[in-house]
């Protein structure tokens, strides 16, 4: 079964006259890790808002087409049921954090509390998640007094606590250092191992290349390319379209131009290292 299906979506935000999404159709299969990339303003966050039903229930505007979550149109889901299926981590942790809870612990428990989960279970869950995300030592702190990077991890933890089938994650690492970023990607990969469906919007293309199964490229509200990560990211045409590609792809392209082709455009450092070593070995023979 598809986790989420977008069918001929066209959407305009209120009081705007251009389509933020213009003819988007895509089936997100269960248990896969999808990366959505593309320039800012290409419609990435708009897709996230659709999957959670925030469009059209919160943002209004003109929506054509349908969004299905687990085979059922999103507007037929009761909001309190939908939020146990789709977890949405906002782009900006400063907006996501409720602001009405005094400790990180309470912030993380807020969703569970709203679902009426038993207190002991709630405490256990919040402890487990904070340890997994590496913020256990922050649980007594006020979420509104944390650094940007810390808040981003709290926002992430509060959604993981909901244990949904599908995670829609909008730039979860924008405020994080490289180490924190990689640890978030590892957590996301572990979600995949638990057969969760992950849809991630992210600019850090090197990590997308390393971790995502499939990549979708959006530009001007349209999907301009999609498929397995290696196939999509090694398309040099993306560079001309101002879509970020890994530096190793640019390197592979420059090698080709210098008449030193690596045979393919490597999308990760590991791949690039293997390609270069093979080429060097070939030259020695």
């Amino acid at each position: 079964m598809n986790s989420i299906s977008l069918k001929n979506i066209r959407y305009k935000y209120p009081l705007t006259d251009h389509y933020a999404l213009d003819g988007v159709s895509f089936d997100f299969e269960e248990g896969k890790f999808y990366g959505i990339i593309g320039p800012n303003g290409s419609g990435k966050s708009t897709i996230c808002n659709l999957m959670k039903g925030l469009i059209p229930s919160f943002y209004l505007g003109d929506l054509e087409g349908t969004v299905e979550v687990q085979g059922k149109p999103v507007d037929e889901w009761e909001p309190e049921k939908l939020c146990t299926k789709v977890g949405y981590i906002f782009q900006n942790p400063f907006t996501q954090i409720s602001g009405i809870r005094d400790t990180v612990f309470e912030e993380i428990a807020i969703g569970l509390e709203n679902l009426g989960i038993d207190k002991e279970q709630m405490i256990q869950k919040a402890e487990e998640i904070t340890k997994r995300i590496g913020i256990y030592d922050l649980i007594e702190k006020n979420p509104n007094e944390l650094s940007g990077g810390q808040r981003q991890r709290v926002a992430f933890a509060s959604i993981l606590a909901m244990d949904t089938d599908i995670y829609v994650i909008d730039e979860p690492t924008s405020q994080l250092d490289p180490d924190g970023t990689e640890s978030v990607f590892k957590i996301i990969r572990s979600l995949k191992e638990q057969k969760k469906t992950v849809i991630l919007v992210e600019h850090k293309i090197e990590l997308m290349a390393k971790y995502a199964d499939e990549i979708i490229v959006l530009k001007d509200g349209k999907i301009i390319k999609s498929g397995p990560a290696r196939e999509v990211l090694s398309d040099y045409d993306l560079v001309n379209k101002k879509v970020a590609v890994p530096q190793t792809v640019l390197f592979g392209h420059e090698m080709e131009r210098a008449g030193k082709s690596l045979g393919k455009l490597p999308i990760t450092i590991d791949e690039a290292e293997v390609c270069v070593r093979e080429r060097m070995r070939g030259e020695q023979l």
Binding site: D177, P178, T248, E254, M255, A258, K260, I269, R279
Partner: peptide, 29 residues
């Protein structure tokens, strides 16, 4: 806990030192 840029990391792994620019690395190979 910072990471080298990709090209720098690649050149280090290849035993070519810390090269920052793609064209420099291409020329060395």
């Amino acid at each position: 806990k910072i990471k080298k840029p990709q090209i720098c990391e690649l050149s280090t792994r290849l035993g070519l030192g810390n090269i920052m620019k793609i064209e420099t690395l291409v020329n060395k190979l």
